[in-house]
Design a protein around this nucleic acid. Structure first.
Length: 332
DNA sequence: CGTATTTGACCGAC
DNA sequence: GTCGGTCAAATACG
């Protein structure tokens, strides 16, 4: 495994450098033509991502991010089995029967540092710790409905060491609560089965790209079966990138990426697809107004592009047409 | 007054 | 013993 890494790293280095270049170009272009703010945010994210990845590769350290990068290259099915065996240093104390997933959330420009980091769920802070080797403390959150509904989902939020605009959000467990807020509720409710014993498609949020602030998602399934949901916004390979030619990262592609991957991967032979997730467009539409009110949920579902690689996982999701998306409050 | 956050204590894993 | 995660009393907030 270590041997293959060399080639992969070189490849990655190439790709990332290339991509970074292009993203910069796009950024300039956007600046001049004043396109949608989404473009800016995305480009910003792209750059941040590349910066990080490159620094990792150059230093050869930081196993954590490395595994995130690895997902870029390798399909989901491969990463997990070896993951448990070889990457033990990173996950030395994995909790059995607990899924872990880390997102690297970049605060959009202008956003204050105490970003709400609203991901659609209601979290309650229950602790904070200074972490060895980290400049910033780590906050511990659990689902508000832990006691009322026995929801065991938790998350940890920590500001990135060197980039204060990036937050590392680690989700643990899954929501079993029915949140009145967010599509999570609807999606979760529609999931075929929620049985604890089954490693079904985890929380729908898993496959989400937090748009207003979203950056990167790393998924680590540490469960018995270990399924991985690499919901990578840019699931390109080095080849594709090369072929990109002149139109690299066109804005439309980015949007399509999300819009397209979403229903195609989630939708199953369900009759009512017209109202199916109609709010997704609403979300995209409302995005990019520079407004980041705290309850502003600029999220969207982007299905893992590689989900098609794992036939086992078929999401069948449908949304209650009556589902009110305005109901984003956390109260029940 | 009920709920959320803060913060030191506690506990289990290394 | 150290470290990370959680608990819970005290406090803040509405």
């Amino acid at each position: 495994m270590e041997k293959g890494m060399d080639w992969e790293q070189r490849c990655l280095l190439d790709v990332l450098t290339h991509g970074k270049d292009r993203a910069k170009q796009l950024q300039k272009h956007l600046t001049s033509s004043l396109s949608t703010q989404m473009g800016f945010v995305l480009v910003d994210d792209i750059l941040g991502c590349y910066e990080k990845a490159l620094s990792v590769l150059n230093s050869g350290a930081l196993s954590e991010t490395k595994s995130a990068v690895t997902m870029l290259e390798s399909p989901p099915s491969v990463a997990n089995s070896t993951d448990a065996a070889s990457d033990q240093k990173e996950v030395s104390k994995k909790r059995k029967t607990m899924s872990t997933r880390t997102e690297y959330v970049k605060a959009s420009a202008g956003t204050p540092q105490e970003v709400p980091l609203d991901d659609g769920y209601c979290w309650r802070k229950y602790g904070q710790k200074d972490i060895l080797g980290s400049k910033h403390p780590r906050g511990y959150y659990r689902c508000t409905h832990r006691h009322s509904q026995g929801c065991l989902a938790t998350k940890q939020v920590q500001k990135s060491d060197d980039d204060p605009t990036i937050f590392e959000v680690t989700y643990r467990g899954r929501h079993t609560c029915k949140q009145s807020s967010h599509l999570a509720a609807a999606v979760a409710a529609a999931l075929p089965m929620e049985a604890e014993s089954m490693e079904k498609p985890e929380q729908p949020e898993e496959a989400m790209l937090n748009f207003g602030t979203g950056l990167r998602v790393k998924t680590e399934e540490l469960e018995t079966k270990e399924e991985i949901f690499p919901s990578f916004p840019f699931p390109y390979s080095s080849n594709e990138l090369e072929e990109g030619g002149s139109n690299i990262f066109p804005e439309s592609m980015l949007e399509n990426e999300i819009m397209a991957s979403f229903p195609s991967a989630f939708v199953s032979p369900v009759s009512s697809e017209s109202n199916y997730f109609s709010m997704s467009s609403c979300h995209v539409g409302s995005f990019g107004l520079g407004q980041t009110s705290e309850s502003d949920l600029t999220e969207i579902i982007s299905a893992p592009a590689s989900v098609t690689n794992s036939p086992d996982l078929d999401f069948s999701v449908e949304l209650d047409p009556n589902f009110s998306f305005d109901n984003l409050e956390c109260f029940s």
